[in-house]
Structure formats: structure tokens, C-alpha cells
């Protein structure tokens, strides 16, 4: 056996197999965020049917805020909505939930909310998608947990897992 050829072959093949193998099981659409531990980008967005009122993130300092990016065209958002409603009810007064509608229109949002049991927390409209860009939103739904000091503590990619959110909130409260 030619040991030199075998050694060179292994040197080339093993790292390649390792690189390819390490990708198995990963969601290729997952975008890791660099925002964890950093100040949440400030936004001031209009409230759907809020008669011109806006919500500014910095005005919610003092308690955790769960910022959920969603849209009517996002099928997973429909699955996630009852979970968020339930969480918002459980943590009412202690945690602020905010929904930010991304790439959507007000009539569609109204119809969607009517169809899906309304909302117990404000739906904000991301005019120009500036907030979604600042939070690095790729595929919906995505949610960010912001602590009382305005620091991003967690990103939830896809529909939130109630158990994980509860664990994270309990750690903050």
C-alpha cells in the first residue's frame, strides 16, 4: 500500500467530509443573529387601527418585551399566533408583547386578525420595513426577546416554542 497517497487522500477528504457532515441537521435558512447581548434597535411604529398612535420601543423600558415579526402571508405565523396570545395572557402586565407586521397591508392585517381570534397585544406596521432590516429579519416568523434594559437576550427563529419562551422570560423576571 502506498502510505503517502493514502495520507494525502485522507488529508484532503477528512476535512471535506467534516465540513459537509457538520452541515447535516442544520436549517439552511437559519441566519444566526449578531444582535444577542446588544442594544435592541430603536423603533417607533404606527399601531394598526391605533388612530395614528405610535409605539416607541424605548418607552417600554423596565420590563421585558417580546418583539414578534409576522405577516398575513406567513403560514407559520398562523400556527404561532395562538401560542403568542396564550403567552401574552399569562404574562399580562409583566411582559409586553409586540407584533410587527412585515411587508403587509392594513386591510389584509385586519382580515387576518379577525380570522385568527384578534390580538391581545398591539400590531405595529413596519413602514418601509426599516425595523425588519435593523433586526436582521430573513424568514418569518422571527421574534426577539428584549430585556428591561433594552438588550436583546434571545432570538426565536420560526414559530416560538412556548416552553422555551417561558424559561427565558422566567430567567428575566
Amino acid at each position: 500500500m502506498n502510505w503517502k497517497v493514502l495520507a494525502v487522500g485522507l488529508l484532503l477528504v477528512v476535512p471535506l467530509v467534516w465540513v459537509l457532515g457538520s452541515g447535516f441537521g442544520n436549517d439552511p435558512s437559519y441566519i444566526p443573529t449578531p444582535l444577542i447581548g446588544k442594544a435592541a434597535p430603536e423603533f417607533e411604529l404606527p399601531v394598526l387601527d391605533g388612530e395614528g398612535r405610535t409605539v416607541r420601543l424605548s418607552e417600554l423600558r423596565g420590563k421585558p418585551v417580546l418583539v414578534n415579526f409576522w405577516a398575513t402571508w406567513c403560514a407559520t405565523c398562523e400556527t404561532e399566533h395562538p401560542i403568542l396570545l396564550s403567552l401574552a395572557r399569562s404574562y399580562e402586565g409583566r411582559v409586553q408583547f409586540l407584533g410587527i407586521a412585515y411587508l403587509d397591508t392594513e386591510p389584509k392585517l385586519r382580515a387576518w386578525l379577525l380570522r385568527n381570534g384578534g390580538s391581545t397585544f398591539p400590531a405595529l406596521i413596519d413602514v418601509g420595513s426599516a425595523a425588519a432590516v435593523a433586526y436582521g429579519v430573513g424568514r418569518l416568523p422571527e421574534s426577539y426577546l428584549v430585556d428591561g434594559a433594552g438588550i436583546i437576550r434571545q432570538k426565536y427563529f420560526g414559530a416560538v416554542n412556548a416552553g422555551q419562551v417561558i424559561d427565558d422570560l422566567e430567567a428575566l423576571l
Binding site: L45, L48, D49, T54, E59, T120, F121, A131
Partner: peptide, 23 residues
């Protein structure tokens, strides 16, 4: 939904344009 929205601290002035509320 509207009642819940009213519970959140809101800025007094409505947003005038995308630029005005852009980040």
C-alpha cells in the same frame, strides 16, 4: 386589540411618513 393597544405607552404625534419613523 384596540383596547390592548391603548395600554401601551404611545408617542403623541402620529407618524407622518416612512422617513419620519425610519430607524
Amino acid at each position: 386589540f384596540a383596547l390592548a393597544a391603548a395600554e401601551v405607552p404611545v408617542a403623541p404625534e402620529p407618524a407622518a411618513s416612512a422617513d419620519a419613523i425610519g430607524l
